[in-house]
């Protein structure tokens, strides 16, 4: 139908906010919406591990205990979900990608691109330049508490300057690649990079 009827008085959510901290087309929320592409995993921490991989082999793998003994980084940042909500001043703690590379004995990242692999068969691609140099971390704490399972706990990737689907929940492996490959949503019409300030929501934006 060419001209849908206007539903008198329907406003839906709040209108987009004009602010130098809110990217175009976003609106502010104060809660923390849950978006899941699958069932929330509840595996015990004794079975959890995290690895840096390349070419199908682990360069380094950490148990939960070992992972928590790595240097901790705190970050206060704004997050922006492609479904148009933004949340300001969120506080995170975890291990930076720089510290992970260092702990794995890698002077240089072994590839220019990465693919995050997660429980529930979720993947997402992020260039190394958007993770190294203090830009990304594997987060285990949110607002001072262990990260809740529905928000990606025990650990999620955090790349706050890209749309939040890049901050993959339930991360288990960060794989280094020589070329950029699309992840779970990127194969299905979402933008390969996802910069909220350029409003790169969908392929072709």
């Amino acid at each position: 139908m060419a001209q849908p009827p206007i539903s008198r008085g329907f406003r839906g959510r709040k209108p987009p906010v004009q602010s130098d901290r809110i990217p175009p087309g976003q609106h502010l929320v104060h809660d923390f919406p849950v978006l899941s592409a699958g069932p929330t995993p509840h595996a015990p921490l004794s079975e959890w591990s995290f690895s840096l991989d390349q070419g199908g082999k682990a360069l380094k793998e950490w148990s939960w205990e070992e992972f928590n003994a790595l240097p901790q980084t705190r970050l206060k940042t704004d997050i922006h979900c492609v479904t148009t909500w933004s949340k300001l001043d969120t506080q995170w703690r975890g291990v930076s990608i720089d510290d992970l590379l260092k702990a794995a004995g890698l002077a240089e990242p072994p590839g220019d691109f990465t693919m995050a692999h997660c429980d529930g068969d979720y993947t997402t691609n992020v260039p190394v330049d958007d993770l190294a140099g203090g830009k990304g971390m594997v987060a285990t704490h949110f607002e001072g508490e262990p990260l809740a399972p529905e928000h990606g706990g025990p650990a999620r990737l955090l790349v706050p300057h890209l749309y939040f689907w890049k901050s993959a929940k339930w991360i288990r492996t960060l794989e280094f690649l020589d070329s950029d490959e699309p992840g779970f949503w990127e194969q299905l019409g979402y933008h390969i990079y996802g910069d909220p300030w350029q409003e790169q929501r969908y392929a072709g934006d």
Binding site: L35, A37, G38
Partner: peptide, 18 residues
């Protein structure tokens, strides 16, 4: 059916495969 906001996923009721 999962993930209604970014897209719809149909997962197998037995093994969760997408």
């Amino acid at each position: 059916v999962y993930g209604g906001t970014m897209g719809a996923l149909l997962r197998c009721a037995h093994c969760d495969t997408v």
